[in-house]
Design a protein around this nucleic acid. Structure first.
Lengths: 212, 212
DNA sequence: AGGAATACGGTACACTGTGTAGCGTTACTT
DNA sequence: AAGTAACGCTACACAGTGTACCGTATTCCT
């Protein structure tokens, strides 16, 4: 998304980029991240293991932070996509399963922490790398919350931002620390917890539940 | 805690360690972490800025990961301490305030991510560095949950581990990403949310619908 | 076909940071 | 006085970063 936007700004002349190289390097990076963690991810090692000259890697990603970021957020669809119809519970369950699935990919989790660690104290770089993807998802969740509040299924005092931190933070944290997939009961419990925390109080007796 | 356990194993002879050096370096490290992030934390820089020779720093902390870890978990009292009496709400509020306070210290947050990034893929180092502190706090929360369940204030299906990830994760995540102190309303909202997610259902006076 | 543009493949370099080793000197204990 | 360990300093080997610069190969445009 950020780097290696080859095809888009392809000017007239010139030898075309070899997409295979991008692919090979990315794959090697993912493997390194998953197997040996962010620290082991170096352009030096990537060059050694793929046979791609180091200079070529630099031509695509200015720093390893950029490469890691691409892996961390790459192809990240807005979480809003999955959340189509359904009531509050299935909606949230879908969202949470989605986030869990994403961050349980070891390379993504590893890349994410690495990027965070690397960009601390550099607001410009932070904004450059992480701005979009998260903003999109944050906005998506805010939309869901607003809709739920209109429909009366979500409490009025729920703040989408706080909720976002709680959901994503809890998941990311767990994945990063345990580095083990969460059992499905864990996910279910997590979902229950989130729903309980935002669900509008049970309506008084006069208004019976309609959407069972 | 882990390194620089000077006073404890002070054998008879020999020149005593200069505690001032530990202090100066730690302070500089904290400042670096807070102002410029984990990436800027190097023994080289510490030596340059404090005047302490690099070799002296290595004598106290084998790697910068160890130093960062000391800052990340150093002096970490069990969160159980603050949670004395009171009902569920004030208890949780106290706990959450405590965790917020801790991770809103920029140097602690920065050090924490750094250590995570550095220890990925090295289970031995992970265990060495992070084992104790977190285990203690996790156990403390489990205790609180158990007690609350006995007292009937916390739902029976609440799992202390899941709750721990949710609380700490949300807070850490927010701190790391925003790097700005959470406004007090945020903390209050966060607390409300957690309490809502674990509180036992209100006694079923009017509610026709019992919880399973 | 010729020229412009750009990627490829490789080498070299300056620089920063890591971690280890060794040295004589200093301070404290017995 | 002897023993011990930290101090303060220097040097070294090494890994990784990021930049610059080649000649070569491939493509588009005129």
């Amino acid at each position: 998304m950020s780097a290696s936007a080859t095809a888009s700004n392809a000017r007239p002349g010139g030898r075309p980029r070899d997409g295979a190289i991008d692919h090979v390097v990315r794959e090697a990076a993912r493997r390194l991240l998953a197997e040996r963690g962010y620290r082991a991810l170096t352009f030096e090692t990537l060059a050694r293991e793929t046979g791609v000259p180091r200079s070529m890697i630099y031509r695509r990603w200015p720093t390893k932070t950029h490469l890691a970021n691409e892996i961390a957020v790459g192809g990240e669809a807005s979480f809003a996509d999955v959340i189509a119809g359904g009531g509050l519970e299935p909606q949230m369950a879908g969202l949470i399963r989605q986030i869990f699935a994403r961050y349980q990919v070891a390379s993504i989790a590893a890349a994410s922490v690495g990027v965070i660690a690397d960009t601390q104290g550099d607001r410009a770089l932070q904004a450059e790398l992480r701005g979009e993807a998260e903003a999109i998802n944050r906005a998506a969740l805010r939309g869901i919350v607003a809709a739920g509040q209109q429909a009366g299924t979500i409490r009025m005092d729920v703040d989408g931002d706080v909720l976002f931190d709680m959901i994503v933070g809890g998941i990311v944290y767990r994945t990063l620390f345990s580095l083990q997939p969460a059992p499905s009961e864990y996910v279910a419990d997590y979902t229950r917890r989130i729903v309980a925390s935002i669900a509008a109080p049970a309506p008084p007796v006069l208004s019976p539940r309609q959407d069972d």
